[in-house]
Amino acid sequence: MKIFLFPHCFRQIGWIVLLPTLLLGILLLCGTLSVSGILETFLNDTAIIGIALGSIFVSCSRERIEDEMTSAIRLKALLTSLYTYVVFLIIWTLAVNGIAYIYIMAASLVMLPLMFVVRFRYEMHKYNKEKSDEEQD
């Protein structure tokens, strides 16, 4: 079963896109960056699309050595993120009401891809740190 993955270089491109747009999104959501009109629309769209694209590039780019274990790690991270997202969605829906809920829903547009990035990169960090208990020359 073939699965499409972006070339390895897309991971760096992903971080370059993700980090500034994530910062932009946080500033817009918190109201720290106050804009209106067409500029507001443009910045909102840039933040959402940038975070989504950046997350996908970071998580769905081929590793240096892409084998079945990295595929399994990627799938596990996606599943874990989906479960976590649904749990948070239910909690937010029950606990938050009014205008605040709209802000939460705006953030939740990109929450799943972001959770996937965090989970997958964390699992890959553990995987890459795997040390043999014996070394041979």
Binding site: I65, D67, E68, M69, Y127, N128, E130, K131, S132
Partner: peptide, 10 residues
């Protein structure tokens, strides 16, 4: 066998 060393370790 065409995998990473970490896979063999795992």
């Amino acid at each position: 066998v065409g995998v990473s060393r970490q896979t063999i370790v795992a």
